[in-house]
């Protein structure tokens, strides 16, 4: 709300307006927006058991701009020897701004040969997508990438 606008309001209007503004702000931080973030972080915490995932070794490939959020190609590869002693157990895709932040988990075995998967996912809006890898030694790795989802002018 701009300063000029407030000056032209009388006191009662101002109180109502600012009250509403405060209410909106609270709703945003403790409601929808915050919940979106909290869910993804909570999910991450649940998956890692509180361990902090480190960056690197995970490659998350997605188009910078998705032409339509309904079908967005995604490729994940994890740098791992994939031996019985040392392999990547799984990767989980998380979309923090999707209605359901958990997208999918792919579980590998040493027989997989590579910790690599290519699939297509839905993105409800522009956001940062996460790929969490669980290694056989119990450590976690994470990669993040931003994808812009275009809102078409001629959806048809």
């Amino acid at each position: 709300m701009s300063k000029t606008r407030i000056e032209v309001l009388d006191r009662r209007e101002f109180l109502v307006a600012s009250g509403a503004a405060v209410a909106t702000l609270t709703a945003l931080t403790s409601g929808a927006l915050a919940r979106e973030m909290k869910d993804a972080n909570k999910l991450l915490q649940e998956l890692t058991g509180g361990a902090k995932p480190t960056e690197g070794k995970v490659k998350l490939e997605m188009p910078e701009i998705a032409e339509n959020g309904a079908t967005v190609p995604v490729k994940i590869s994890v740098d791992s020897p994939m031996t019985d002693k040392d392999y990547c157990e799984s990767v989980t895709i998380i979309a923090p701004k999707n209605p359901t932040v958990y997208v999918a988990t792919f579980k590998f075995t040493p027989d997989s040969g590579k910790a690599w998967v290519s699939t297509r996912m839905r993105l409800a809006q522009t956001q940062e997508v996460w790929a969490l890898a669980k290694m056989s030694d119990g450590s976690f790795r994470i990669a993040k990438t931003n994808v812009k989802v275009t809102i078409g002018g001629c959806g048809g």
């Binding site: 209605p99 997208v103 792919f106 998967v117 996912m121």
Partner: peptide, 8 residues
């Protein structure tokens, strides 16, 4: 693989 609604 375990999928949710986010898979196309």
């Amino acid at each position: 693989a375990e999928w949710d609604t986010g898979i196309s």
